[in-house]
Simulated scan of single mutants.
Amino acid sequence: MNQTPLPLLEVKGLKKHFPFKQGLFSTQKGSVRAVDGIDLSVYRGETLGIVGESGCGKSTAGQLILQLIEPTEGEVWFEGKQMTVLSKEELRKARRNMQIIFQDPYSSLNPRMSVEDIVSEPLVVHGLYKGAALKEKVIELLRLVGLDTHHLSRHPHEFSGGQKQRIGIARALALNPSLIVCDEAVSALDVSIQSQILNLLKKLQKELQLTYIFIAHGLPAVKHISDRIAVMYLGKIVELADRESLFSHPRHPYTQALLSAVPVPDPTQRKERIILQGDLPSPANPPKGCSFHTRCPYVQELCRNIAPILQEQASGHAAACHFPL
Rank of each mutant, 00 (worst) to 15 (best):
I225P: 00
I275W: 10
F159S: 03
K236F: 04
V191A: 08
A261I: 02
A188N: 09
L276M: 01
Q165F: 00
Q256S: 14
H252E: 05
L276G: 02
P250H: 01
S160K: 04
E207M: 11
Q256L: 12
N199Q: 14
F214Y: 15
F159Y: 11
Q165C: 00
S260H: 04
P265D: 04
Q209C: 11
Q205A: 13
Q194T: 01
R270C: 04
L201W: 04
P267S: 07
G235V: 02
L204D: 05
A261M: 03
K271H: 07
E272M: 00
V238K: 06
Q165E: 01
G278C: 00
S245Y: 03
K164A: 13
P281R: 05
S260A: 04
A170V: 14
I275L: 14
D190K: 12
N199W: 11
V262A: 09
K203N: 13
Q205M: 11
R171K: 13
K223V: 07
A241C: 00
R171D: 05
Q209R: 14
Q196S: 10
A261D: 00
E184Y: 10
A241E: 00
V238Q: 00
G168N: 11
S282E: 07
I275R: 11
P220Y: 06
F214G: 08
R228F: 03
C182S: 01
L173S: 10
P281M: 04
P177S: 13
A230G: 07
I169Y: 08
A172N: 15
I213K: 05
L189N: 15
L198A: 02
D242K: 10
P267T: 05
T255Q: 05
V238F: 05
G278V: 02
D227W: 01
V186N: 10
I197D: 04
